[in-house]
Deep mutational scan, measured.
Amino acid sequence: KEEVSSHTSPETGIWVTLGSEVFDVTEFVDLHPGGPSKLMLAAGGPLEPFWALYAVHNQSHVRELLAQYKIGEL
């Protein structure tokens, strides 16, 4: 988790977690339908608090999209 928390910018890579999985979403930030700034709120940390607020994320196609960016496990 400490390593994930240091990845919060395009220069270091933008990493997020979901459960025990780690994702590098650097290439996706500008494609995020809610805008880059919304995704950047989660940079370096867990997606769960944000996904709890926005139910649109609880769809299979969203998880499939995220899976493409998986880089490891906590």
Results as ranks from 00 to 15, higher is better:
60 S>W: 09
59 Q>L: 04
44 G>E: 05
2 E>N: 05
32 H>M: 00
24 D>Y: 01
55 A>E: 15
54 Y>C: 09
40 M>S: 05
47 L>Q: 01
63 R>A: 08
70 K>I: 03
47 L>C: 01
33 P>F: 02
40 M>D: 03
32 H>Q: 00
24 D>P: 02
2 E>Q: 14
34 G>S: 01
11 E>Q: 10
39 L>E: 07
57 H>I: 01
73 E>T: 13
24 D>R: 06
20 S>W: 10
13 G>L: 04
17 T>M: 13
25 V>Q: 00
12 T>S: 13
47 L>N: 00
74 L>F: 15
23 F>A: 02
39 L>M: 09
36 P>C: 08
54 Y>A: 03
57 H>A: 00
61 H>P: 12
31 L>F: 08
71 I>W: 08
19 G>T: 03
53 L>C: 13
7 H>L: 04
63 R>S: 07
8 T>P: 09
71 I>Q: 10
32 H>P: 09
44 G>V: 09
69 Y>D: 00
60 S>T: 14
30 D>K: 09
51 W>R: 00
74 L>R: 14
58 N>K: 13
14 I>L: 12
34 G>D: 00
49 P>N: 11
45 G>F: 10
17 T>C: 15
57 H>W: 02
37 S>A: 13
16 V>M: 13
48 E>V: 12
12 T>N: 14
64 E>F: 04
42 A>P: 15
48 E>I: 14
37 S>H: 13
36 P>N: 03
7 H>P: 05
47 L>A: 08
20 S>C: 11
55 A>L: 06
41 L>G: 06
42 A>F: 01
49 P>W: 04
65 L>K: 11
22 V>P: 03
58 N>G: 06
13 G>R: 11
50 F>Q: 08
37 S>I: 08
47 L>E: 00
66 L>P: 01
1 K>D: 09
7 H>R: 09
37 S>G: 10
54 Y>R: 07
52 A>F: 02
27 E>Q: 13
66 L>T: 01
58 N>I: 05
45 G>T: 05
57 H>Q: 02
49 P>G: 05
17 T>R: 00
62 V>T: 02
9 S>H: 15
72 G>T: 04
63 R>C: 05
41 L>P: 01
34 G>V: 00
68 Q>S: 12
35 G>H: 00
56 V>C: 12
69 Y>E: 06
64 E>T: 11
11 E>M: 09
30 D>M: 07
22 V>S: 04
22 V>M: 12
50 F>C: 03
2 E>L: 14
72 G>E: 08
23 F>E: 08
8 T>C: 13
59 Q>K: 13
55 A>R: 12
3 E>W: 12
71 I>S: 08
25 V>F: 03
65 L>D: 09
39 L>S: 01
73 E>F: 10
6 S>G: 15
36 P>Y: 09
49 P>A: 07
9 S>Q: 14
23 F>V: 04
1 K>G: 03
4 V>D: 08
35 G>P: 06
69 Y>A: 03
40 M>L: 14
45 G>A: 13
23 F>K: 02
60 S>P: 15
10 P>Q: 14
40 M>Q: 06
11 E>H: 11
57 H>T: 03
4 V>E: 07
72 G>C: 13
58 N>E: 11
20 S>E: 13
22 V>F: 09
40 M>F: 04
56 V>L: 05
71 I>G: 09
16 V>R: 04
27 E>V: 06
14 I>Y: 02
6 S>R: 15
62 V>E: 00
3 E>D: 10
48 E>R: 01
12 T>P: 09
6 S>H: 15
63 R>L: 10
14 I>W: 01
54 Y>G: 11
60 S>M: 12
